[in-house]
Nucleic acid binder design. Structure first.
Lengths: 340, 340
DNA sequence: GTTAGCACTCGGATGTTTCGAGTGCTAACT
DNA sequence: AGTTAGCACTCGAAACATCCGAGTGCTAAC
């Protein structure tokens, strides 16, 4: 990292924090008020910082704005992350208490929590089904050849799918099928389940047992689709931010969410790495989101990472405040999913 | 209804259609170009229409804008709804084909379809569980005292909930429970199921049978929450509309969606009435949505209305184009839900 | 009843001026 | 050598002025 003098650091930090507060270019005078230095001195330092690529001036007679690089440096080296207050912890916890305990509900609520506590947007990607452990599979007959397949993971995540079969299958046979499958697949992760089914299907003895073949076929169909969903809450929060007062900027943001899968790839990028991850401005490689930062953290069930959550806000977001919120929420969600 | 001369009607219609196209106040000249009447004559008529409350001028030297009353009259008396083209029908149908057949997916897709074909926002309210017929109930043991309850309606709508029990229940007992319940509740609507459970619980013989009591207790818990969800898609569509170029207007719209329950009450208002319903501007009684119109239609399974779908757009929306889309989609969705 | 003609209005676009925040540079100060 | 006061300069935002044209209402002629 660049070697900055102590003074430069202090001033850079001051500029950044001012900018986070006001969203306006920061002038030398406003900083001199808080430090016992004259504006001229500060101007000199700022000029150096600009040279180094930490600041930029929109035009000659405005103040200066921190660049992405500055925020990166701020987050890496200057920032002392606040510890989350007990009070806030309790508030978050009690939010969860209010709602039902269906997993999808919990995830949506998590997104809402992230949004309302950060004052930005909350985002939660649904668990990677693959990493979770199989618990139960069940077939319910809805009508003639229509069957509802229900797949339950050990953490309570449910996936259901309506399947049209070629031939009519009796309810009794359906029960036998699910018994067979539940025994066969017990304790495997969904990814393993997938493999196992393919393997089984090649087995000689299965090929000549219609029931088994059908069962495997059905379960394969149940698994074939594996939607990752994204819950984004609090879009309206960013409507209030001055940097998006401009209509075209706003459109950009919303268009960015149209392609949710792009967002998923972004978030997925940090699925292996532990702990909080931060993408600042252009670092997220989505042109629509150049002016935004993303703070993410993985959450897990058991000790496997199954999903990602985070907060999306402007580059000038209150990192010190938001990081612990994301961190705590991820841990809390992991705990909630485990308890089940 | 006001008695308008034929000429007035023609001119009013022309103004409305111009305004729908351009979103700009309409002047007398642009109309005179299409009809063989001089601007002056048209001005006289327009002046009358203004007097009657069908038009208003934002200021002296602008053209005129149709009022809510004008749109109401237009929809009721002037509009000839186009029939939906075969081609468009096929397009919509094929959209459905692309996706999985989980009911929640279908509803979300419906919302997307409404949005993309109307170019406004699509909205779908999830089925009123109460009106649908019970099909199956199942309990899956997740851990010590944690149980996942799954409730399936005949149309494939699934509701699941995680329940914490006071005592450990064995898997075998869970199976017996669900067998008992499935037999007991077969063929009832969810509303009836609710009553039946309460009734049953008071029965003497049940009170002394722990298993039955527990089963009923569990199912009561499964039912107690009955979330109506709303899928809104295509918000970004309205970002493109000139009337929302103003940032404050836009905020209003998004804030309106914050309270989704308000929206639900609006939509619910037409759940009994058959066919397409239209709320124009202030008619929807949501101050945030004064500049918007809503076109709704109920959809059903069996022959019971279970939910509402619709399109939300500006008051100057292309009614002739959108009404058949809403109508057709509602019918198609009903058919899709029935087929299962 | 219709229309041409005309004076009038008013908002949007364009141009001009003013104001002030902020800069860079230089020279004096510690 | 680092710091600071002073000053000329820059440039955008806001305020003000002007112009233009689309559109109106009214009147008088057709």
């Amino acid at each position: 990292m660049e070697n900055l003098s102590d003074r430069s650091r202090v001033i850079l930090e001051a500029v950044i924090e001012d900018y986070i507060r006001t969203a306006e270019p920061v002038g030398s005078r406003s900083i001199s008020r808080k430090h016992t230095l004259s504006p001229a001195t500060i101007r000199n330092v700022m000029s150096d910082l600009e040279e180094m690529g930490f600041l930029l001036s929109p035009h000659t007679s405005a103040g200066r704005i921190p660049t992405d690089k500055a925020f990166r440096f701020y987050v890496d080296s200057l920032l002392t992350v606040r510890t989350i207050e007990k009070e806030q912890q309790d508030q978050i916890l009690s939010q969860y208490k209010l709602h039902g305990r269906d997993v999808a509900e919990i995830l949506k609520e998590t997104s809402r929590i992230l949004s309302s506590f950060s004052h930005y947007m909350g985002v939660v990607v649904t668990p990677r089904f693959n990493a979770t452990v199989f618990r139960h599979m069940e077939f319910v007959k809805l009508g003639g050849r229509t069957i509802l397949a229900i797949l339950v993971a050990i953490n309570g995540v449910v996936q259901n799918k309506i399947i049209e079969t070629d031939e009519v299958i009796s309810p009794e046979e359906l029960v036998r099928m699910s018994n067979y499958l539940n025994e066969l697949l017990e304790g495997l992760t969904i990814a393993e389940v997938r493999n196992r089914i393919l393997l089984e299907m090649e087995d000689e003895k299965v090929r000549y047992d219609t029931m088994l073949a059908r069962a495997l076929n059905l379960s394969a169909q149940t698994l074939d689709e594996n939607g990752t969903e994204v819950f984004i809450e609090g879009q309206f929060n960013i409507l209030e931010l001055p940097e998006f007062a401009d209509v075209t900027r706003m459109k950009d943001v919303f268009h960015a969410f149209e392609e949710k899968n792009q967002l998923v790839t972004l978030l997925d990028r940090c699925i292996q790495s532990e702990g909080v991850h931060i993408f600042i401005g252009a670092e997220n490689y989505l042109s629509r989101m150049e002016k935004m930062s993303v703070i993410t953290a993985p959450y897990m069930t058991g000790n496997k990472t199954v999903g990602i959550l985070g907060v999306i806000g402007p580059t000038r977001m209150g990192y010190d405040r938001v990081i612990p919120i994301v961190d705590y929420t991820a841990k809390l969600l992991s705990k909630l999913l485990d308890a089940e």
